[in-house]
Nucleic acid binder design. Structure first.
Length: 807
RNA sequence: GCGAGAGUGGUGAAAUUUGGCAGACACGCUAGACUUAGGAUCUAGUGCCGUAAGGCGUAAGGGUUCAAGUCCCUUCUCUCGCACCA
């Protein structure tokens, strides 16, 4: 007999049911205790014109299964979805076609919604937010103004990464291998008026609070490395002539005696002052060249060090030795003091530079206290040599002693530096939140008053970036020209817009109270749900979104808007889904899998389970359109079991035991997000049930419940066919009896010298001697031990016996 | 170069938490049954060598142990992140 599994019909039926009955709407019920509330969050998508990718539903399915599972276990679960809808692709499309970005964006949002809903996720759609709507970005602007009031947003003329293709400045975090993360064009260096966010003020807290978070160590390490805290000392060197001084930052103050020259960044303000007349021409030329080099040209491409001598000398404070001052572009003005003392004996870069320009190399650290010919820089810790009264000290001791010594003499002090730079926050583009600041000749920067927010995006005729460092907004004179909110005089609006990251920095808060017009979210709702218990998304956001969001959250915490100093307590990165050829899915390789096709052919339930069955959530794994039929067969088998006649007979004991074992394994594995092994167990169980002629309701109903988070549509259908009231999603998760998960007998393994020689089914709980007796009685074991001396017998209860013999 | 993670059948993977039968589950493949037909279903088999007994086997080599995929050391390969940050 043929059983039909009409997935299209079933899935449509139950999606309509859920929508009509608002099955997944979540309200704040104060009678539910805090530890029974759960906030499960997905990284919301950018609604691209390409539509949903198979990678999106991987994480969404994982959180959906978890949410439904926890909900059936008595938790009150908030599980929302929205759209990160400001961004360059929509604007680029507008430039090409003239379509307003709002039109194409909202069109794409509509398409995404339809696609996402086809998966049957249990989102509370009433809470949906989109970052491009004025009701939403009003509060993005509000947070910006709060940052500005606290001095955390400031305007500066700084050299930034400029993408010549996107025609906008971008953040350090958006530069990958010297290229624009978005369009892969090599970035240039430009000096431009910018708005920046003082994320560096929070560097220490962003670093320290990582310890509180249940994130993977790998991810935390990435953030730690990006923040890049280092401890050392600032040391002052007097100039040999003219009375000035140079301050350097070093992590190795213990190598001060080995400093044989100094290097300034070409942009260092002292360069112009100290350069001697006979060196001026060379120095000016070098400074000019460096100014236009991108960071990439100054680093990766310039493997060979360059530099010029300024003609000036400085005095080493520890030994009064006169050393030359050079400039070189391997010194960055943006790190430390923009100047270094060069210790070529113990720093690879300084060594290379000294070799090239014939500068002195002095050894001041030794592995064992003796001198060696230095064929390369010795950068390890060791014992001080050649360092006057400090000789013989270990590197860590020396660091402490010399820092104190310098401090006492007013020539230096302990210092801490970070690799993290302030966040370049403005974009010279149209499709983003306008920065709510007005430039007044008299009053300077003036905030747009809070009661005038949102400052909405004006309509423009051309979306094309000017490329001059001004956004398309700059050409709309009646928008630009305004009055100063403070003095009422003539003023101009800020024309830069915010980066895409701004909206995604706080969207998880807006879900809590999406329609609130008075505050970004009511405090009691924030207290009710926050912090996020589980956040799932791709690893590509490790140092972008996740660092920015943590920063803004801390700012909001400091001004009393939120209740915790971290937003996301537990974070899981789903692995990447690769194409069938094991390569990254991409249009150019033609290996892209379209979720719509899979759903049409196999069904959403099949797709959900297949994506989870492929392997561990965090691993990257290749798609296989062959293997997916295995999951489809599981669901067909369930329909087949459902069609069997129900019986009132007592079910066989073995099946009852398997049922309890299955409940136990699926419960544990779902809790720990090991969905692949949970599914395998349900396959084992359903295979057994399918072998029976009849259907035992007490064995069948638990299976439907276990399947509910995984295959929600089919589970509803089978629940109904079993004569139950919908929705199965509102049912209680099945319980298991631990006693019934224990077997009365086990396959006992008999080993001789560590090799399996026989196996026997034995009752559990046998004593050591009983086991030994059974093993000795085995013919096969006798064959291997006869005539040999027994040296040792090891028994692992209820598992194994190993007889060690000699001869 | 530095840092992190990973290498298990023809394939995706289990078992690594706690050292105790390696390969659960699934795809594929082989044979058979049913069938006008099958990309359907069912049954059996499927790590490698071997008729068998047995031997070998978790990237390679070494070590600890009665016992190692699991712990330790060396090497190789792959993936990811960072990359003159003084």
């Amino acid at each position: 007999m043929e059983t039909t599994y009409a997935h299209l019909e079933i899935e449509k039926k139950w999606q309509d049911f859920w929508e009509k009955n608002k099955t997944f709407r979540v309200m704040e019920d104060p009678s539910i205790p805090k530890d029974k509330r759960l906030y499960v969050l997905d990284m919301f998508p950018y609604p691209s014109s390409a539509g949903l990718h198979v990678g999106h539903p991987e994480g969404y399915t994982a959180t959906d299964i978890y949410s439904r599972f926890k909900s059936m276990n008595g938790f009150h679960v908030l599980h929302p979805m929205g759209f990160d809808s400001f961004g360059l692709p929509a604007e680029n499309y507008a430039i090409k076609t003239g379509t307003h970005p709002r039109i194409s964006t909202e069109d794409n949002i509509g398409k995404f919604e339809v696609q996402i809903k086809k998966f049957g996720f249990c989102y509370d759609w009433d809470r949906q937010v989109s970052t491009h709507t004025p009701e939403y970005y009003k509060w993005t602007q509000w947070i910006f103004l709060k940052c500005w009031e606290k001095g955390l947003a400031y305007e500066a003329e700084v050299p930034i990464n400029w993408c010549p293709s996107c025609l906008t400045g971008i953040a350090n975090e958006e530069v990958v291998d010297g290229k624009c993360e978005r369009c892969k064009t090599q970035v240039e260096r430009r000096q431009l008026r910018q708005w920046c966010m003082k994320i560096t003020a929070y560097a220490d807290r962003l670093l320290k609070d990582l310890d509180k978070l249940d994130w993977s160590e790998a991810l935390k390490l990435m953030q730690r490395n990006w923040i890049g805290r280092s401890e050392g000392a600032n040391v002052t060197f007097k100039l040999a002539e003219g009375g000035g001084e140079i301050e350097v930052y070093t992590t190795r103050p213990d190598t001060l005696f080995g400093a044989t020259y100094m290097v300034l960044a070409p942009e260092h303000p002292l360069v112009a002052k100290i350069t001697t007349p006979d060196c001026r021409a060379e120095v000016d030329k070098y400074v000019n060249q460096a100014r236009y080099k991108s960071d990439l040209e100054r680093t990766d491409l310039a493997k060979v060090k360059t530099g010029v001598f300024t003609g000036a000398y400085a005095i080493n404070p520890v030994n009064d030795v006169k050393i030359p001052v050079w400039i070189s572009d391997y010194i960055l003005i943006s790190y430390g003091t923009g100047a270094i003392m060069a210790v070529p004996g113990h720093d690879e870069r300084d060594f290379e530079f000294a070799k090239k320009f014939g500068l002195d190399i002095i050894q001041v650290v030794s592995k064992d206290g003796t001198f060696h010919e230095l064929s390369e820089a010795y950068v390890e810790n060791g014992v001080a040599v050649n360092s006057g009264q400090f000789d013989g000290l270990s590197t860590p001791d020396f660091k402490k002693k010399i820092t104190d010594w310098l401090e006492k003499r007013g020539q230096g002090k302990k210092a801490i530096n970070y690799k993290l730079r302030d966040w370049v926050f403005s974009r010279q583009r149209y499709w983003g939140e306008p920065i709510p600041i007005v430039h007044c000749d008299k009053c300077g920067h003036v905030a747009v008053p809070y009661d005038q927010l949102p400052l909405t995006l004006p309509e423009v005729e051309s979306y094309k970036p000017t490329g001059t460092g001004e956004s398309p907004l700059a050409s709309i004179t009646d928008w630009i020209n305004t009055t100063c909110p403070k003095c009422g005089g003539k003023a101009k609006r800020e024309t830069n817009t915010m980066p895409q990251w701004a909206g995604s920095c706080w969207y998880y808060l807006r879900y809590l109270d999406p329609k609130n017009g008075r505050e970004l979210a009511a405090r009691d709702k924030i207290d009710y749900w926050m912090p996020v218990n589980l956040y799932v998304g791709g690893a590509e956001h490790a140092v972008l979104h996740l660092l920015y969001a943590r920063f803004w959250h801390k700012v909001l915490y400091d001004i009393g808007v939120v209740n915790t100093d971290e937003p996301f307590m537990r974070l899981v990165n789903q692995g990447m889904l690769l194409g069938e050829d094991n390569q990254k899915m991409s249009k150019s390789l033609g290996n892209v899998i379209n979720p719509d096709d899979i759903i049409r052919e196999h069904g959403a339930d099949t797709m959900r389970i297949y994506e989870m069955f492929m392997g561990p959530l965090e691993a990257s794994k290749p798609w296989s359109s062959r293997s997916i039929v295995g999951v489809r067969r599981l669901l067909e088998r369930l329909v087949k079991i459902s069609d069997k006649p129900a019986t009132k007979e007592k079910p066989p004991e073995e099946l009852v035991k398997l049922c309890h074992k299955t409940i136990k394994k699926v419960t544990n594995d779902t809790e720990t997000l090991n969905f692949n092994t949970a599914i395998a167990q349900m396959m084992i169980y359903s295979n057994e049930l399918a072998k029976e002629e009849q259907r035992y309701p007490e064995l069948w109903e638990p299976l439907i419940l276990l399947m509910t988070p995984y295959a929600p549509h089919l589970a509803e259908e089978l629940w109904e066919r079993a004569g139950k009231e919908p929705s199965v999603a509102k049912q209680k998760w099945p319980a298991y009896d631990d006693a019934l998960t224990q077997d009365a007998t086990v396959q006992f393994v008999f080993q001789v010298n560590g090799k399996v020689r026989d196996k026997l089914e034995l009752p559990v709980g046998l004593s050591r001697d009983e086991v030994k007796e059974k093993a000795m009685a085995s013919e096969k074991i006798q064959k291997w031990i006869s005539g040999k001396e027994i040296r040792q017998v090891i028994v692992v209860p209820d598992k194994l016996i190993n007889i060690v013999v000699k001869g």
